[in-house]
Design a protein around this nucleic acid. Structure first.
Lengths: 146, 146
DNA sequence: AACATATAGTTGTTTATGCAACTATACAAA
DNA sequence: TTTGTATAGTTGCATAAACAACTATATGTT
């Protein structure tokens, strides 16, 4: 029984994920400061495509832990910004394959640099071993509920 | 230098806070299953008021790591649900003090039980020491960026 | 072929967040 | 008193998430 593990006051703090929102907000600010006008959520989709271009919306759902409507709308917005293009699959006409445009390809190195710098700032003073522990705990929490 | 601490693929996963969103989603589901029709965000405000009733919107901002517009709208929605009431402060007419209604007071014990049970499920198999480490790391990340 | 079922994606609705611009009150200094 | 400034809260706008209901295509069974 873990019943008194959290004092009542800490409960929401843990649920709210204030650390991850703080990183996201900071990263957003750093993008803006560099003149890059995309949201963190859009960037998270581009990140997946930089790893492997031409993935289906379904694959993007799984890779970014979002549901299908969320991906539909993120892809909508990315298409409006001319950063991706939907291409219907020839094998299976239900599927849209999402491809990066040249504009999006040009964003990779700069945004990844900013993201890495932001993360380094966030993790300043955190030792490697504790970080590994934290990642393991968070993964376990996720697995317990998934 | 922490430059290669994260493999590229893990970067977004850490930023996205999938563990906290998984807990939030589960808690939301458990509320719904118990017939409690409030959102996690609304519940987070009520939690603060259960600890101390009659706080200002500004105090709720600080306690829940939200900005002022977010609190304005959450209080709007809670008022529509007859769970809180705005009462202008007599000392300082800029301030709204937020008070729980009887209906909201009646929600405390049941929702806190559900929240604790959900958290226990989320933390199953996580030992106390690792949890403390994770909390310390997340706090440090927050402090580094705040 | 016909039917059922599963899968991929879209649309509508509600709620919430982030940011900028705004109003109103309080307070402090000249 | 006037002027400036800080603080509390609200409003408008864009983006995103969760959920349910929907369309269209694919697949498997009889």
């Amino acid at each position: 029984m873990l019943n008194n593990q959290f004092k009542k006051g800490e409960l929401y703090s843990f649920i709210s994920g204030k650390a991850s929102t703080a990183i996201a907000r900071k990263l957003q600010k750093n993008f803006k400061h560099a003149g890059i006008e995309i949201t963190i959520e859009q960037w998270s989709i581009l990140s997946q495509l930089w790893k492997e271009d031409g993935r289906s919306q379904q694959q993007l759902c799984e890779a970014t832990f979002r549901d299908k409507p969320s991906i539909t709308r993120l892809v909508d917005n990315l298409e409006k910004l001319d950063l991706v293009k939907r291409v219907p699959s020839k094998n299976d006409r239900r599927i849209n394959l999402i491809f990066l445009t040249t504009a999006a390809k040009n964003l990779e190195s700069e945004t990844m640099e900013i993201a890495n710098a932001t993360l380094n700032e966030a993790l300043e003073g955190v030792n490697q071993k504790d970080l590994e522990t934290a990642k393991t705990v968070l993964q376990k929490v996720y697995d317990n509920l998934a």
